[in-house]
Design a protein around this nucleic acid. Structure first.
Lengths: 248, 248
DNA sequence: TAGCGATGTTGATCTGAATCAAGGTTGCGT
DNA sequence: ACGCAACCTTGATTCAGATCAACATCGCTA
C-alpha cells in the first residue's frame, strides 16, 4: 500500500486536478490566491475515519484524490451509506458545528481543507464560492433523490446494475470522454460497502453480481475489475430509461 | 372542497405567513420590495399536477399553504416519492430548464411564484437570497439522506413510525411550540401516498398502521386524525435515537 | 336514498431477499 | 512456505412484505 504522503499533492491551485470541478471552480485568479493562503492538505489511508458522526468538525474541504463514503448507523448496527465522495466532491457543511455522518476514506485519499471559520468568512465575501457550492449541493440533492428511487423501488438486480452504471458513467466522465469500445473500470467498493449503499446484504450483492456475470451483462476479471460490453444493456437491467447515454 | 381562489392570499410580503422561513427569509425591506414586484400567486386544487417531470418549467416559487409532493416514476409504473413540500418549501431549481420530478398538489395549495429569469437575475445581485437558498438546500439534502436510511434499512413498522414522527414534529413546529399534552395531527397523505413515500405497498401501510394502533402507539379517530400519547414511544418504534425530543 | 368511485382494511398465499452455514481465494506478516 | 484474516461465493432455509382477493366505509351525485 502506498504511503499516502507520497501521493502527488499539488502545490498551487493552478496545478490542481480538481480545479475546474470543485467548490473553487468559479473563482478568479485573485480569489484563488486567497484560498491558496488558507488551504492545507490532509492525507488519509484506506480504512481511516475522517470524522465520526456527532463529532466536532472544524474544517471543510474537497476530495482531491481517492474515495470516501458518508454513512449513517443505527444503534443496533444497521448501516446505510448516504453518499459516495469522489475527487472534487465537497465535505462538511458551512454553518454547522458537528458532522452529521461518519466520513470514512475507502481508499487512500487526499483532501484540500480549509478551517471552517476562515472559509465561511471568505464565502460571505466571495459570491463565486457560494454560487458554486449551491450548484454542487443541488446536484447532490438530485443524486440523493435518484438514490431514493433505487432504495425504495428497485429489485436487488436492478440495484446492482444501477450502482455499476453510476460508477461506470462517472469513471468515463473523469477519464477522456468518448473512448471507443467497452467500458472498463475498477470497483472502488467491497461487497459489504456495496450492500450498505444499496440496502442489501453482502450475500445478495455477491449473488446478483454473479448473476449479471452469468448473463453476460458484465465481464469480471478478479473480483474488482469490471468490463461492460454493452452499456445500454446495463442501463436496461438498471430499469433506467435507456438512451440518455450520450450527452453533448 | 374549498375553491382555492377563496383561500387567504397575502397581498404584501409583510403579511406573508412564510415570510421568515422561505427563500426570502433573509431579505431586507428594500430587497423584499423588489421581490414583491416580480412575484405572483398561483393556486392549485387537491390532486392537480403542478408540473410533469421533463416538462419545461419557467418559474420557481415557494409553497405558501397546502402540501405538494415530488415523485419519480419508472416506465413500468413503480413510483417513489422523493420530497414532501410544505409551506415555505422551495420548488424548482435555478439554472435548470426542465422539471426533474412530477410535482403534484396533495391538498389545495397556494404558491408564491417568480418567473425563472427575473428570479435568477435577482439572485445574482442579492446574496441574501442565494445564501438562504443554499441553507434550505443543505437542509433538504440532510432530510433526503435521513430518508435513505429509512428506505434502505428500516422495517415496515419502523418506516411508518418514522413517517408519523416526522409529520408530528413538523406539525408541532408550525403550531405554537411547547403545547402540553399528547400530540395531535391530521395525516396529509393517503395510504397509497404513504406507501410511495416509504417504498411499501398500500396494504402493508394499512396493516402497520393498524398494528401501531393495536399496540397503543397511536390512537386513530377516523382514518386521518392521529393522536400520539407518548412521542418518545413513537421515536422508539421508529428506531431513532430517542431523546432529542426537546430542543430549545 | 341508491349507486358509484375513491379510499381503506383484512385475509390467504407467494416470493425475493435475509439469514444461517459452509467453504473458497487472496494477500500479508512471520 | 505457512497460517491467518479479510474478502468473497454458494447453498439451504426462513420470513417480511408483496401480491391476489374480498369486502367495508365514506362522500358525492343523481
Amino acid at each position: 500500500m502506498l504511503d499516502p504522503e507520497t501521493q502527488a499533492i499539488p502545490r498551487e491551485c493552478g496545478d490542481c486536478p480538481i480545479r475546474h470541478r470543485a467548490v473553487c471552480a468559479r473563482c478568479e485568479a485573485d480569489e484563488l490566491e486567497l484560498l491558496d493562503q488558507i488551504k492545507y492538505y490532509r492525507s488519509f489511508e484506506a480504512g481511516q475515519t475522517v470524522v465520526w458522526a456527532g463529532d466536532k468538525m472544524d474544517f471543510v474541504g474537497s476530495v482531491v484524490s481517492g474515495i470516501a463514503t458518508l454513512t449513517q448507523t443505527m444503534e443496533d448496527g444497521r448501516t446505510q451509506m448516504v453518499g459516495l465522495l469522489l475527487p472534487s466532491d465537497f465535505v462538511g457543511r458551512p454553518g454547522r458545528q458537528t458532522a452529521a455522518y461518519d466520513v470514512v476514506a475507502t481508499s487512500d485519499m487526499v483532501m484540500c481543507c480549509f478551517r471552517k471559520q476562515p472559509f465561511e468568512d471568505m464565502m460571505s465575501r466571495t459570491p463565486h464560492i457560494a454560487q458554486r457550492l449551491l450548484e454542487m449541493t443541488l446536484d447532490e440533492l438530485d443524486a440523493a433523490r435518484e438514490w431514493m428511487l433505487v432504495l425504495g423501488r428497485k429489485t436487488a438486480r436492478e440495484k446492482i446494475a444501477s450502482l455499476l452504471s453510476i460508477i461506470a458513467r462517472r469513471d468515463a466522465a473523469l477519464n477522456v470522454a468518448g473512448r471507443r469500445g467497452p467500458m472498463v473500470f475498477i470497483l472502488p467498493l467491497t461487497r459489504e460497502a456495496m450492500a450498505d449503499y444499496l440496502g442489501l446484504t453482502l450475500e445478495t450483492v455477491s449473488r446478483q453480481i454473479s448473476a449479471l456475470k452469468r448473463d453476460g451483462v458484465i465481464v469480471l476479471e478478479g473480483k474488482r475489475h469490471v468490463t461492460v460490453p454493452d452499456f445500454n444493456r446495463l442501463l436496461d437491467e438498471a430499469g433506467d430509461d435507456s438512451d440518455g447515454g450520450m450527452l453533448a
